[in-house]
Structures are given as C-alpha cells and as structure tokens.
C-alpha cells in the first residue's frame, strides 16, 4: 500500500472539509489510516468544525462506522462539531439500519452543512 492520502482536506473560514478519495471504505488498514488522519486534524484544532463529504463514498463497513463514532466522540470532547454530508442511496440505508442517523448530525448537502457551522 502506498502512503498516498486517502483524504482530501480543505480549510476555509475555520471549517475543515474532508473528502474521501477512496469510494469503498471497507479495508481495515484504510479505515485505520482515515481515522488517524482525521484524528490528527481534530487534535490540531482548538474547536474543531469538520464536515465529512460522503459524495464519493459507495460502500461503508461497520468498522468504518466505528471509526466515525470514535471521531464524533473526540470532536464532542472538544465541544466541536462533526457533520456528515451528502450521504445518499444505500449508504443512507446503512446509517438508517444501524440507527446511527440519530447519533450523527447529517446534512443532505455541503451547502447545508457549511451553513449550519457558520
């Protein structure tokens, strides 16, 4: 596996926008790398405001959900905000089935997510 980042991270107006490069978030090693990379962003921020853009994601495992829960807790510990955006189709089913749509702040679009953080 290469050291190429599995994420694209953009900063604007104090908000961190994270896009997934890999469309299948299934592999344990990938999930660990993604989790570590976002956790390091959270660690660097006093008050993290982070949007995870799922527009490019087509498959998600329970391990990936666990990683997102861990990140959400980490952000919550710093009184920050973590928003999941652009979750659609079968990925939305994964969140609905696991009832994690109740545990996360989810926005239909990036515009809605950014607006709610400003």
């Amino acid at each position: 596996m290469t050291d190429t980042s599995l994420l694209q991270i953009f900063e604007h107006d104090g908000i961190t926008n994270v896009e997934f490069v890999e469309s299948n978030i299934l592999d344990e090693m990938c999930i660990r790398r993604i989790g570590d990379e976002i956790a390091s962003v959270i660690d660097r921020k006093g008050l993290p405001k982070i949007v995870l853009n799922f527009d490019n994601v087509s498959a998600l495992s329970s391990s990936a959900l666990g990683m997102l829960i861990t990140l959400n807790t980490k952000v919550g510990d710093k009184k920050g905000s973590l928003i999941l955006a652009c979750i659609k189709g079968p990925i939305a089913d994964v969140f609905r089935i696991t009832k994690l749509d109740k545990a996360f702040t989810i926005c239909d679009s990036m515009a809605e997510a950014l607006s709610s953080l400003r």
């Binding site: 329970s62 391990s63 666990g66 990683m67 829960i69 696991t98 994690l100 109740k102």
Partner: peptide, 12 residues
C-alpha cells in the same frame, strides 16, 4: 449503545 464503536457487523 449508539456510541459503541463496534458490534454492528452481524446486525448489518
């Protein structure tokens, strides 16, 4: 249990 990071595989 919604904040537990594991235990969802079989449920899925």
């Amino acid at each position: 249990n919604l904040t537990l990071p594991s235990g969802r595989g079989l449920a899925m």
